[in-house]
Nucleic acid binder design. Structure first.
Lengths: 150, 150
DNA sequence: AGCTATTAAATCGCGTACGATATAAATCGA
DNA sequence: TCGATTTATATCGTACGCGATTTAATAGCT
């Protein structure tokens, strides 16, 4: 019986057959969908992800945020400074270990969670997918990410 | 019988349940996997995607490249200038329509395709997935992208 | 205690990425 | 044909994102 064939090098070199490109362009597409929703909150898409991480667990170090978001301190530090300047978070050196910086929500930052509560529905809507289907795809991609980072 | 329930707002607000975050972080993961492979070619990951598009179809305008890659001229113009400075492509105003810039591979740029031919295999390998599975996932994500851009 | 190694953030340089705007060329209409 | 509109790139300002390096603080070892 016919086995699945290894794709020819020609087929492998077509942009539209690249899984990485699908992900690359879907990521940009998400950014565009989020833009109008996040403009209301004065957040960029990456900033929003940081806020989501903090709403889920307040008082984290730069390092632990970086682990969760898969970002380096060289990316986070400037972003966090902007969020601080906007009054959404505070950045304070840890008294017990002065190497670490503790990132905490301000009252305003915490309150923003309510205002942001309608965002996920808007996104789910834009995907045109059922929640269960979204969950399955999300899981598959998270598994892929884990393989890539191995 | 039990129907799939709509997730609670609490569940919806957890970072690890975000499809967008899975894609966002998988995209970064791909960038990291590509890095060592593309260093050999002196290309960044986005530059590589442009080259792939040109290897597939030479002599394109900035606009048509942008459509295929979902990028704006404000992103492409500087990128293309770098690829031109590296000697991989040429940028020439179209004689018939001076508004357009035709992007063409140089001999060196064309030759680079051979050197890049082993890259896709390395990536497939890093995904830990079967080609058929990769194709299916790629298709799902492309469909998602289309929904988001609708 | 004192020296070394490690760790956590921050800084720097470079390359995307986009929205808004500018510039220049082609098209369209009266 | 000429003026207004549209189209194709380019430019500018802002914000990621990372690798390499720096700085400062802690941990670890003798």
């Amino acid at each position: 019986m016919a086995k699945a064939e290894t794709p020819s090098p020609e087929e492998l070199m077509k942009l539209d057959n690249f899984l990485c490109f699908a992900i690359y362009s879907a990521n940009h597409a998400f950014t565009r969908v989020y833009k109008p929703l996040l403009d209301e909150l004065d957040l960029t898409y990456p900033q929003y992800l940081v806020m989501v991480a903090l709403w889920e667990k307040d008082d984290q170090t730069v390092g632990s945020l970086g682990e969760k978001l898969f970002l380096e301190s060289s990316t986070l530090t400037p972003m966090l400074k902007r969020l601080e300047a906007m009054g959404y978070i505070s950045r304070v050196r840890d008294r017990a270990d002065e190497r670490q910086v503790r990132v905490r929500l301000t009252e305003i930052g915490r309150a923003l969670k309510e205002k942001a509560s309608t965002v996920p529905l808007g996104i789910v809507d834009a995907t045109g997918m059922e929640p269960a289907e979204i969950g399955r795809l999300k899981k598959e991609i998270a598994t892929l990410r884990a393989s890539l980072l191995r």
